[in-house]
Design a protein around this nucleic acid. Structure first.
Length: 117
RNA sequence: AGAGCAGGCCGGAUGAUCGCUGGUCCGUUAGUGCGGAUGAGAGGAAAGUCCGAGCUCCGCAGGGCAGGAUGGUCGCUAACGGCGACUGGGGGUGACCCUAAGGAAAGUGCCACAGAAAACAUACCGCCCUGGGGGAUCGGCAUUGUGCCAUCUCCCGGAGUAAGGGUGAAAAGGUGAGGUAAGAGCUCACCAGUUUCCCGGGUGACCGGGAAAGCUUGGUAAACCCCAUCUGGAGCAAGACCAAAUAGGAGGACGGUGAGAGCGGCCCGCUCAAUGUCCUCGGGUAGUGUCGCUUGAGGCGGCAGGCAACUGUCGUCCUAGAUUAAUGAUCAUCAUCUUCCUGAGGGAAACCGCAGGAAGAUACAGAACUCGGCUUACAGGUCUGCUCUGGCA
RNA sequence: GCGGGCGUAAUUCAGAGGUAGAAUGUCAGCUUCCCAAGCUGAACGUCGUGGGUUCAAUUCCCAUCGCCCGCU
């Protein structure tokens, strides 16, 4: 298994899982995102992304999701095990590049370390 | 050279690294799965969901009314509200563009304000003729008073007329002549229109020519409506399938009734069927399960027919199938455009093209059952044909 | 994917072919020692955008933009 992969069992898919994360998780706000962190029993780090219609048109929504997945794929080793991460994209997001997202989320997760420990 | 019209095409490229979703093959495994190899992976609009179809279910998809849609003609098409060609009308110097373009002499409604009147002119002012009454005149005649006549004028009434009348978006054919008390298509000439008929051309819309009727009839149907044609409803969230265990259940047959349902607004027609008995089968709201799900009115090229839309035929190609929803990220090189700087050059100047460098930008937008159209969005590039204006030879 | 609805003053809504209105709010004046309340007056509008029908369109028709709601 490669280090920078993004497999199916690493995704949050079911509506139930999303709702449980909203209930139990810790919320962190940033300029463009709301990140919710929650412990799970699976032994995996899992990622779920929520992008509503208010964020933009289909191209903007797809691009935002791809960039967030890319960040998870390249940086998941630095995160703790058995963690569910849900990222909600706020509305009115501008056209972002990977660098913008990397910088924003990097500082966000550094600050969050003491919360999850 | 400038300005413009119509139509078509493209809509970033290459490489490296790290990933994502299917297909095929191989290995492994009881199987799920796991590993490896290989090849595939967004658009001209994939969008809006405005039309039309295929497909599926509603037993059948039947008739009539209602409702809805369309509206020049002929053709193309599986079909269409689409497309092509043509006709009429409007716009433009022109290339060309726009056009819901049937019926207002079937009926109903509406036409504010202004105006006599907005549609049955029974019509106000005015004009003309006339009956009755009053007043005036250095007026005329007769004359004691006064009366009669003429002219002007005021009031009340009758008849004729539609020439003229501030208006208004729109005013009851226009101009001229005759005619008359005054006038009027009342009559005539020319012009405009309407209806009917005839001849010629065209499949047809319609076009060209001629004759007759004084026929002159306001606008609005994207107001109701009439006429012609089409139209059952829902939609892949349609719909179908699935191992094991138990109850609720499901299906079939018989009997039974006409409430109720299919049925979407109504009627007809058709069908099912409450409850009961017997027999047979076992599964639902499961698992965000499998199928439907991508080969199709398919694309490309040649030839033939047709003005064209399009059709026929031959060859060739297979080209996304996700379901928290794949098709991406980073780096490098190049391409295109814009701005700025530098250099040599042309020019009186504005400026023009050439070479080099820097910075920035590269649109609109993401398949979700599939096609045919329409509409809308779009950085920039490119090709073809045509028109007008100016200059030079 | 499918279906339905709404855009009018700063706000909430009327108006359905003929000069665009109501309530609340805003501003000014009167009243009061001052404020509130009350009274009087004023300002406020591309009728979401573009085109068409009509003499005339917020209203009718077509296209388009934005917003809201419902259906596994």
């Amino acid at each position: 298994m490669g280090t920078f992969t993004f497999e199916k069992h690493e995704r949050i898919k079911k509506r139930k899982d999303f709702l449980r994360t909203y209930e139990d998780g810790t919320r962190i706000n940033s300029k463009h995102f709301i990140v919710i962190l929650s412990r799970n029993q699976g032994g995996y780090r899992r990622l779920g992304i929520t992008v509503t219609r208010k964020t933009g048109n289909a191209v903007t929504r797809n691009r935002t999701k791809r960039l967030l997945r890319e960040f998870f794929r390249l940086n998941k080793e630095t995160l703790p095990d058995s963690l569910d991460i849900v990222i909600i994209v706020k509305k009115g997001i501008p056209f972002l590049t990977y660098k913008n997202i990397y910088e924003e989320l990097e500082t966000l997760f550094k600050e969050s370390h003491h919360i999850t420990e």
